[in-house]
Design a protein around this nucleic acid. Sequence first.
DNA 1: GTCTATAATATGATAGAC
DNA 2: GTCTATCATATTATAGAC
Lengths: 216, 216
Amino acid sequence: MADTQRSSTGTTDTNEVSAGRQLVLDTAARLFRAEGYAGTSLRDIAGEAGMRAASLYHYFDSKDAIVGEVLRIGVEQVFDKVRAAVEALPPEADAQVLLQTAVHTHLQGMHGLQDYTCANLRIFGQVPAHVREAHLPTRDAYERYWVQVLARCARQGGFDHQRDLRLARLFLFAAMNGTLDWFQGGAVSLKAVADEMTELVLQGLRQRPSKENPAP
Amino acid sequence: MADTQRSSTGTTDTNEVSAGRQLVLDTAARLFRAEGYAGTSLRDIAGEAGMRAASLYHYFDSKDAIVGEVLRIGVEQVFDKVRAAVEALPPEADAQVLLQTAVHTHLQGMHGLQDYTCANLRIFGQVPAHVREAHLPTRDAYERYWVQVLARCARQGGFDHQRDLRLARLFLFAAMNGTLDWFQGGAVSLKAVADEMTELVLQGLRQRPSKENPAP
DNA sequence: GTCTATAATATGATAGAC
DNA sequence: GTCTATCATATTATAGAC
């Protein structure tokens, strides 16, 4: 079975994970993103990586092993960055700083690893069932982490009831992930987008004037 | 060339568009949504529709003609409903009613035609280039309509500068379309989701307290 | 680590009978 | 309007040489 772990399986160097393997993954991610799962053949991946289809089997057991790795990397690398950034904050950081940091880091992570994250969002629903099921725990773990982040925001008070928190999380995730479809690094920066999103969600979560008692 | 129009090309009845053709489209939309463009073969579509692959060519010229129709229907049917609902409003309707109506109708349209709208969002990026380019004007027209709707909201005053309006539209679209990934018709109704989204966006667009001058 | 060759199967599309 | 039969090509995966 081809090497399926990430941790230091160095060939000659200390923790080099094999340049060939990395090239195959990068190429696969780019093609899966653009052509979909079934639309990307092993010949396509091999061709763009400068080798023949049979050579891919030196690095991976099957097409599904490749796509499984692409899916995993797309989530875990963003997760790692967001967790590191949030843990680097002081315990007394307020809701705005906390959410700004998490959102900005999530956006940076996604756009820095575009082919993987975009491929993940686009092909997750069309990958063979056993690949999707094997990947689900990775997605769920990241989602649960965001539940924690928003709960930590809510602990600082001034928020509405529980239901708003779930909806706010779903809106926020959709808005963040949606940036992959339009953000090109033009006039507004990723940081500005993150701050706008944070503001929107925090405003939405605070107690608001009702219809019967509108704002002035 | 197979019939590519939608308007009354009745076989025997007045404006019946051929039950066979409709069955093919419905089946194709469902499969494209679940398996992607390349992952859905003509044999798959035909099999689920109770016929043989060759019979599909009685209704359509090619696979691309089928996918083009699925894409078009996914946008146009929602567009038609949203426009009708907005035009039915009195001219003096305020920003909240206007946006609530547009958002709720968009959500209803999407979820009523799930296979088409979801297929559209999922496979648009992986369809052959000429199919995508042919479909683009349809998408653009709907997007421009939403620019108008938000501009009409903004005309009622109290909003910030132009940039916020574009970001708000992009956030809103991502959040609305994202409901297809999680909404199951459980505890909250689609109307409740629409109202929450509307509130969030309107709060975000109104002049807000800055960091230097925070809310009480 | 990469190749050629090949097996077994699936694909979009067409021809032509009924 | 649906079928069977078929063409030309593409697919994942394996065997085995270098």
